[in-house]
Write a protein that binds this DNA or RNA. Structure first.
Lengths: 343, 343
DNA sequence: AGTCATTTTGCACGCGCGTGCAACAAAAAA
DNA sequence: TTTTTTGTTGCACGCGCGTGCAAAATGACT
């Protein structure tokens, strides 16, 4: 505590600029900024001298001024419109870590209220972000349009979701390949009456999981499985939907597996099966998810699910940011099925 | 899709400045910026004229330049070092919403790796954030010191956690009052052998929950309850700790209630009681939490817990940001006990 | 029409750094 | 030593807006 006050009192003036450092180190201001710039043309001796003076004065370059002068902010806006899915927390962690480790900062923009989306995007563009990232949200055309028409718009990246929109860069797992792997697993394990539990359908960038699953099942077994949609990726809503759909149903007509569009739905489904329908997982009804959230490996879920390579995807995202090109940057990744006990 | 391309093609030049608008509206550049500034001295007619020209040109003020010139960025850094607790997602949502609704933007800084903390804080200070907010994290003295010595440091706010540090503003629930309410409830319901499950102990800003609970119990019943600490607020770690602590114990010596420092621990505890110890909640062992995360009301937890008034706290935080004062801004809030079925 | 109080508008200067080129110094080749 | 090559440093100008004050315009009141 005493140390605190010492530090506070000793604190150097807050407004140290490159000029001050330049004076102290006997060089020009430009040399000072060079010292802080990687790969700049400066001799090691001078850099050393400058850095020492900078340390003594407590100088660090002002990123606002740098952004203004260079027109590159090294800042991205991350739009999130869904805070109910714990997987978002994992994504935030991975993305912020990958970005920060390579010099990028993240503006977190809450677009949970659809009305907030357009103003929030406009605001981000006023900060002159170098890119706008939409993470796996249920954004619609309106949001995309707002993002696109915003001033100084540079890159619009859709993360963990595919979009066929040509003005957009999407970085996601290959839904068709993933769903195909899941479907094959379900068939091999001998499940016969699947129920597909999907999230909300969006226009601009929906997941191709449900369609792929239904199509594959139709193709191989010539029947179309039942499917149910939930208006949000929320475990409680999923539990409600499962309960309503199945509670009055005779045991013989129950599905033997519920394939969920993601883990949030899958976890709610397991809860409903156990606590509202009074059945067992996987014995009575199996469940399979998508994402591999941390809870999936909890001993009382042991959820079989598909894991996305989030770290790779996040790193690729930074590659995209640092790339000057604008086209053909879309890319899909492959994850893997993590088999546990729920299916 | 066609509309997209139209928009893209019609897009106005990205570098519209106030000068362009000024020329179009036949006023000076300063008048243009006045039109965008609330409470500025400008006549309604002129403002109208300017705004119309601005709309046509698609002009919005550049916040980088504004921040540089005014030395106020309306930007805060939000430091998070714990992405395992779903409650963080709720906090992020509440904070970003409150901030944005009043014109503030949020820089999300991941300090999960302790080594990243100091550089990340330095970086935020290079962006000249108006405040640094630590949200309920296990930050230690080192992080506080880094935040404090950073250049251009303005306000350091500790959210949802109390700190006795004088250079810090803390906005949190009153842990003592809350724990007192919880303790009273536990006693009234006739529980006799509580086990307190705590998270990691930190030096700078720890929760006063455990100490208060133990002290109150000691005071009223003259016995000190057993307590266990977990190295992180992680449901799986809590489940492990509970299992290790209780699995070999004769039934008569088991606690009749486990009081948890927060919901992340409580949820893990319930899982462990049910699935690893094979006991029932609350019949064999009751559980009580803290935070009221969304999952707490899920039908298969029905967790009795203490809800923090996050929205009020977030709004107060913005009040603090907009306040010029620096001292005596600390404040504690009162939440309420949400009684469900787990205790 | 003239005076004065009150808005409303214009402007010089500064915020701190990047860009690109010119000037300079140092090391390499002649 | 002189010339060339390479490496290093300095600088004019601009990025877009805020601050504070002075000039101009407006309106109220004789």
């Amino acid at each position: 505590m005493t140390e605190w006050h010492r530090l506070k009192k000793d604190a150097l003036p807050a407004n140290v600029t490159a000029d001050d450092v330049a004076a102290a180190a006997n060089v020009s201001r430009w040399t000072v900024n060079r010292a802080f710039k990687k790969d700049a043309s400066i001799s090691p001796k001078t850099r050393e001298k400058v850095m020492q003076a900078a340390n003594e004065l407590g100088y660090l370059p002002d990123l606002r001024a740098a952004a203004l002068a260079s027109d590159r902010s090294h800042l991205v806006a991350l739009l999130v419109d869904d805070f109910a899915n714990p997987h978002k927390l994992v994504m935030l962690e991975r993305l912020t870590r990958a970005l920060r480790s390579r010099g990028w900062d993240t503006l977190l923009v809450n677009t949970l209220n659809r009305d907030d989306a357009a103003p929030a995007i406009a605001n981000a563009s006023q900060r002159r972000v170098d890119a706008t990232i939409l993470i796996g949200i249920q954004f619609d055309d309106e949001v995309l349009r707002a993002a696109h028409t915003a001033r100084r718009f540079k890159k619009l990246i859709i993360f963990a979701r595919t979009s066929e929109n040509p003005d957009t860069i999407s970085i996601a797992v290959d839904d068709e390949a993933a769903t195909s792997e899941i479907t094959q697993y379900v068939m091999e394990r001998g499940y016969e009456r699947p129920l597909y539990l999907a999230g909300p359908r969006t226009v601009s960038a929906h997941l191709k999981r449900k369609e792929t699953f239904l199509a594959l099942w139709q193709k191989h077994l010539n029947t179309t499985p039942e499917s149910v949609s939930v208006p949000a990726y929320d475990a409680n809503l999923a539990a409600d939907a499962v309960t309503i759909t199945l509670s009055e149903r005779p045991k013989a007509e129950l599905p033997d597996i519920i394939v969920c569009e993601n883990d949030a739905l899958a976890l709610g489904t397991i809860d409903a099966i156990r606590h509202r329908l009074g059945l067992r997982v996987p014995n009575d009804i199996a469940v399979i998810g998508f994402d591999d959230v941390p809870q999936a490996e909890s001993p009382n879920y042991r959820l079989t699910t598909y894991r996305q390579p989030l770290t790779d995807m996040a790193n690729y995202l930074v590659d995209v940011l640092e790339n000057v090109e604008t086209s053909d940057l879309d890319r899909t990744f492959c994850g893997r099925l993590v088999v546990r006990d729920s299916a």
